[in-house]
Design a protein around this nucleic acid. Structure first.
Length: 160
DNA sequence: TGCAGTCTCGGCT
DNA sequence: AGCCGAGACTGCA
């Protein structure tokens, strides 16, 4: 059966962030592709007062946002397990892909974990940006590495 | 650097 | 259903 989803767009200097909200929560988050760090600093322009917009506004400031509901995501059991694990990473901290694999009990499935991260339908809401390589490399990010860098910078600078 | 080991997923045959 | 290649990785040579 078809579920009803509501589109929600948030304008920023990097382009529009587009959300799809289902009855149970957010089910998709699309970020404008940003592979290289843009000249222009990131800033939100038009951002609503609803919980989802507020979440994003807070997160991008580097503060710890109040968790918002996440809807039923489409994916394999393995992927859902990875995504659930990602939700347990506290704001301001980073975890390696390896540690993430171990946490969900599949120490050898590192690449599979990375793959699952890449298929995360709701980046920002499921903090896949806090997962980095063992040697400190960033790895990748759905909307381009610029987002990942920016998010980590923001979170790092806020923690004391 | 380079390369093999390891696991899951999606596309093709 | 089975095969094959690719991937946001690691660790060792």
């Amino acid at each position: 059966m078809l579920e009803k989803v509501r589109p929600l767009s948030i304008r920023s200097t990097w382009g529009d962030i587009q959300l799809l909200i289902a009855a149970e929560g957010v089910v998709q988050c699309i970020l404008p592709r940003m592979d290289d760090m843009p000249e222009e600093a990131f800033a939100l322009q038009e951002c609503g007062r609803d919980p989802y917009s507020t979440y994003i506004r807070t997160l991008l400031k580097g503060d710890r946002p109040k968790q918002v509901p996440i809807g039923q995501l489409r994916g394999t059991e393995f992927q859902k397990k990875v995504w659930a694990g990602l939700l347990t990473i506290p704001c301001g901290e980073t975890v390696s892909y390896k540690a993430m694999a171990e946490r969900i009990g599949c120490a050898a499935a590192i690449r599979a974990v990375a793959s699952a991260c890449g298929k995360n339908p709701v980046p920002l809401f499921i903090p896949c940006h806090r997962v980095i390589g063992s040697d400190g490399r960033l790895g990748g990010f759905s909307g381009g590495l610029a987002w990942k860098r920016m998010l980590l910078d923001a979170e790092q600078s806020k923690r004391s």
